[in-house]
């Protein structure tokens, strides 16, 4: 038997590391990956609460988060490729102008 709050604290750890990485990382791909880490942490919380309440809807929510994350990754990486093509850099500090 594992207490549910172990899972919740694990997801809090992962989410906080994701927030820290999102703020600290300077490479746009690493920033994007820390967003994925935060999404995964929230998914773990959903599954833990689905287990606690014996409800399927928590898992359905995780399913939809996965679908949206897949769409987001495809569009986000395409945007990153477009940015790299026009500016030849991936550093978020150098991508600070809306118009070239």
């Amino acid at each position: 038997m594992v207490p549910i709050y172990y899972y919740l604290i694990l997801s809090a750890i992962l989410f906080s590391i994701g927030v820290g990485a999102f703020l600290i990382k300077r490479n746009i791909i690493s920033v994007f990956m820390s967003i994925e880490l935060m999404l995964n942490a929230v998914n773990l919380t959903f599954v833990a609460f689905a287990h606690h309440w014996h409800q399927v809807s928590g898992q359905i929510f995780v399913f939809f988060v996965m679908v949206v994350a897949a769409a987001e990754a495809a569009v986000g990486l395409a945007i990153i490729i477009a940015i790299f093509r026009t500016r030849a850099t991936l550093d978020v500090d150098r991508i600070d102008l809306m118009k070239l």
């Binding site: 038997m1 207490p3 709050y5």
Partner: peptide, 15 residues
């Protein structure tokens, strides 16, 4: 987050 989860650890139960 940890403070909130720890304060609700009894009603959350075991998995």
């Amino acid at each position: 987050l940890v403070y909130i989860f720890l304060s609700y650890r009894t009603p959350l139960g075991d998995a």
